[in-house]
Amino acid sequence: MSDAEPTSVERARALLARHPVLDGHNDLPWALRKHRAYDLERLDIAQDQSASLHTDLARLRAGGVGGQFWSVYVEAELQGDRAVAATLEQIDCVLRLVERHPDRLRLAGTAAEVRAAMADGHIASLMGAEGGHSIACSLATLRAFHARGVRYLTLTHNDNVPWADSATDEPAAHGLTRFGEEVVREMNRIGMLVDLSHVSADTMRHAMRVSRAPVIFSHSSSRALCDHPRNIPDDVLAALPANGGVAMATFVPTFVRQETRDWLRDYEAALGAAGIDADDGERVRAFRAEHEAEHPCPRATAATVADHLDHMREVAGIDHLGIGGDFDGVVSTPEDLADVAGYPNLFAELIDRGWSEEDLAKLAHRNAIRVLGDAERVADRLRATERPSVATIEDLDG
């Protein structure tokens, strides 16, 4: 009697052993700051941390993760020197994580280093700064972060910065200011990826016009399928092939399922009508439990995320897709993508939809590594003819 055919999940695990995931965004460093003030012994990711985190080493292995952009995010309430210092603390956290777990993690700053780490069975560890407030309007600070290993900058977080508009704030610059354009050009010159997650649609379009290197969306999905300002409009997706960039689909339930987004808006309205301060944690938790008992929240699944990837592939093409789960940066996750061990469930869904191994390998990591290498080549060319910019926001935006 022949052995039973492998299940789709078993096939997905085998595929990810050959073509591991390079995920565009994981907020573990900020979670370590919040939970244990960066005490890596008290919250050791070599141990099972499923009670408090989406991420630990065992679950990364189970999920087929071979590379990770660790977000060195700091909240927008931190501005100026405080934001710079906190970003350096985040960078230090990643560097200490890698130093603490040399058998599993390896620092990577180039496409070649990512490939070498994966080939050796390590998780290639890169860094991405989430929010332009981190650089405090200083191109020298931008260069210093790059020298410390940061390989992308998300131009904004949830609030505008003085030189670029966020997706979730009121328009001010209607894209980039002149200094914002200079930030993008300097990022191109040093080889730092321009990340357009979190920015407004106008900022996306403006940055893609200015950038001389491929851009990324480290954790954004399709606005056509879920009308959230954090997602990517179809015209921007359609422009990605000409730019050469990659859109890394996220798993955030309110970004991928319209019914979940609508539920959240209704819940927030009910919370406000009840006169409960959103910062009053105990009352909010009690109210939400009661509200959900009467009005269950629609759940996203791997199939929901696969719907976005199907659409994004149709609009942008398979060469411009990746994965950016946003684990440890969100409260809720899709049912079968609960943590970093869940990637095989998404790839199993795509296998069942007829995606080829070649297409799945591109999605898993090939496209992301290719964009990283393309940005390096652009930087090599630009540094041969351009000097570091000494422009200031006062010079350009006055």
Score class of each variant (00 low, 15 high):
Pro344Asp: 05
Leu360Thr: 01
Tyr267Gln: 01
Glu314His: 12
Leu346Val: 04
His311Pro: 07
Asp336Asn: 06
Ala361Ser: 02
His365Ala: 08
Ala300Leu: 00
Asp307Ser: 06
Ala368Leu: 15
Leu346Ala: 03
Arg299Gly: 05
Gly272Tyr: 14
Pro334Ala: 07
His295Arg: 13
Asn345Gln: 13
Arg299Met: 07
Leu271Met: 07
Gly322Trp: 11
Ala306Leu: 09
Arg313Val: 14
Ala361Tyr: 04
Thr301Leu: 05
Trp355Ala: 07
Leu346Asp: 05
Arg299Ser: 11
Leu309Ala: 06
Leu363Glu: 00
Arg265Glu: 09
His365Cys: 08
Cys297Arg: 15
Tyr343His: 07
Phe327Asp: 06
Asp339Cys: 04
Ala274Phe: 12
Asp336Trp: 00
Ile318Asp: 15
Leu337Cys: 06
Gly342Glu: 04
Ala270Arg: 01
Tyr343Gln: 10
Leu309Phe: 15
Ala302His: 04
Val340Cys: 05
Ile318Thr: 13
Ala270His: 03
Ala273Arg: 15
Asp336Gly: 01
Leu271Val: 05
Phe287Gly: 00
Arg288Phe: 04
Ala300Trp: 00
Ala302Asp: 13
Tyr267Asp: 02
Ser332Asn: 11
Leu337Trp: 02
Asp352Val: 13
Asp310Gln: 07
Asp307Gln: 04
Ala273Pro: 09
Gly354Thr: 06
Val340His: 04
Phe287Tyr: 02
Arg366Phe: 09
Arg299Asn: 04
Glu290Thr: 10
Thr304His: 06
Lys362Asn: 08
Phe287Val: 00
Glu357Cys: 07
Arg353Leu: 15
Arg370Asn: 03
Ala303Cys: 08
Gly317Tyr: 06
Glu357Tyr: 11
Gly354Trp: 10
Glu358Ser: 10
His295Ala: 08
Cys297Phe: 03
Ser332Val: 07
Arg353Lys: 04
Gly275Asn: 13
Ala368Lys: 00
His308Gln: 11
Glu282Met: 11
Ala368Met: 15
Gly354His: 03
Ala270Leu: 11
Arg299Pro: 04
Asp266Asn: 10
Phe327Thr: 00
Tyr267Met: 09
Ala303Tyr: 03
Arg265Ser: 13
Gly322Phe: 14
Pro334Leu: 04
Tyr267Pro: 02
Leu309Thr: 06
Ser356Pro: 04
Leu337Phe: 00
Ala300Asp: 06
Ala368Glu: 02
Thr333Asn: 08
Leu360Cys: 07
Thr304Lys: 00
Val331Gly: 15
Ala274Val: 08
Met312Cys: 10
Cys297Ser: 09
Glu268Trp: 14
Ala286His: 12
Glu314Arg: 15
Pro334Gly: 07
Gly322Cys: 09
Pro344Val: 09
Asn367Gln: 03
Val284Glu: 01
Ala361Gly: 01
Pro344Lys: 06
Ile318Trp: 14
His308Met: 08
Leu337Glu: 10
Glu290Lys: 12
Ala361Cys: 05
Val331Gln: 14
Gly324Trp: 05
Asp280Gln: 01
Cys297Pro: 05
Gly322Leu: 11
Thr333Asp: 03
Leu271Pro: 02
Glu292Tyr: 11
Asn367His: 08
Ala306Phe: 08
His291Trp: 15
Trp355Thr: 00
Pro344His: 01
Ala286Trp: 09
Gly281Trp: 13
Leu337Tyr: 01
Tyr343Asp: 03
His295Ile: 07
Ser356Gln: 07
Met312Tyr: 05
Asp336Arg: 01
Leu337His: 03
Tyr343Asn: 02
